[in-house]
Nucleic acid binder design. Structure first.
Length: 313
DNA sequence: GCGACAG
DNA sequence: ATCTTGTCGC
């Protein structure tokens, strides 16, 4: 039952969110902190993570949050965690993290508990880092809350601080000749907020890379490039593919019955009729079931009186 | 009224 | 984010 789109938050909520972003932003580290980041070939880097959230078609609440870990430099998936979640916050440009990040933090926590040896050394995040209205995009947010190095990888330019996807910008894109070519995205303040990167020889549309946490912009761009078999970096791409697949497999049985819990969430299975093309009857497996929900409405809780990272490495 | 708007 | 399979091209 597709719940209705969450309404735009009241302005008090937005001001709380802005305050929380400002407090957490003070904790961002925008330089290399790990030895492998300085190495030309990233020697010492073995695991790169990717996160993504995919949505159910007619439903603005149900989604699948996924975390994958790939080996480096082989870029083979060595860990996958997909989980259905119930989003509470609506999408508001500039506040993406408040919608998605609680579930991504939870995924990282599960990984730390179950497979500490597979915790990634860096996370590629679908969205921006410092390239953001207030310099604190989802990649920064997730980085601070997990204390993991994070890179923001956006597919579209966030037009902020004077940055515009205008004719001049498109001209610069046209000058990107080969995979790895890039140019800086300089905000009105003169600060370099990120880089436009041609991630692949056969890709015209650039990626917009920015620092999330505990990595320099130079290393962030170089690593993003090093993760691209196609336009989208493999960790993010795999997280996206697998979360979508998970949703497809879950659609036929939206409410996985947890043993011992007969919370009848009324979900009508497709009737005998030819309502829908069924996938191969693949029972929900591997990971936990039951939509999880972000704890109590964020907007009712006072902004972080304490701004400590919830997970320390 | 019109344009902008990461995912 | 999502709506959508096959098809054309390198």
């Amino acid at each position: 039952m597709a719940r209705e789109a969450a309404e735009l938050p009241p302005k008090e909520t937005l001001s709380l969110w802005i305050r929380e972003q400002a407090q957490l932003k003070a904790l961002v580290v925008d330089r290399d902190t790990e030895a492998w980041q300085r190495d030309p070939g990233f020697s010492g880097l073995q695991r790169v993570g990717g996160v993504d959230v995919s949505f159910v078609k007619g439903d603005s609440v149900s989604a699948c949050a996924s975390l994958v870990v790939l080996s480096y430099p082989e870029l083979e998936v060595v860990y996958e965690d997909c989980r259905m979640v119930s989003l509470t916050a609506p999408y508001v440009s500039g506040f993406l993290a408040f919608r998605e990040v609680p579930f991504l933090v939870a995924a990282v926590r599960r990984l730390r508990e179950k497979e500490p040896g597979l915790v990634p050394q860096v996370l590629l995040v679908d969205g921006n880092g410092l390239l953001h209205h207030r310099g604190f995009g989802v990649a920064c947010h997730l980085g601070v809350l997990t204390d993991l190095p994070c890179i923001g990888v956006a597919k579209k330019l966030l037009q902020v601080d004077g940055l515009e996807n205008n004719t001049q910008h498109k001209e610069k894109i046209g000058l990107l000749r080969a995979g790895g070519d890039s140019f800086p995205l300089t905000g009105g303040s003169g600060t370099v907020l990120g880089m436009a990167l041609r991630s692949h020889d056969h890709s015209t549309k650039p990626l917009y890379v920015s620092v999330g946490h505990k990595i320099s912009l130079e290393a962030a761009v170089r690593l993003t490039r090093g993760c691209c078999r196609f336009r989208i970096p493999e960790p993010v791409r795999q997280a996206d593919i697998r979360s979508r697949d998970y949703i497809r497999r879950t659609l036929g049985a939206p409410t996985p019955p947890a043993p011992g819990q007969d919370r009848s969430q009324k979900v009508q299975r497709p009737k005998g009729g030819s309502e829908e093309l069924e996938d191969e009857g693949r029972p929900p497996e591997a990971h936990g079931q039951g939509p999880e929900t972000a704890e109590s409405p964020r907007h009712t809780r006072p902004a972080a009186a304490s701004v400590e990272p919830s997970c320390a490495q």
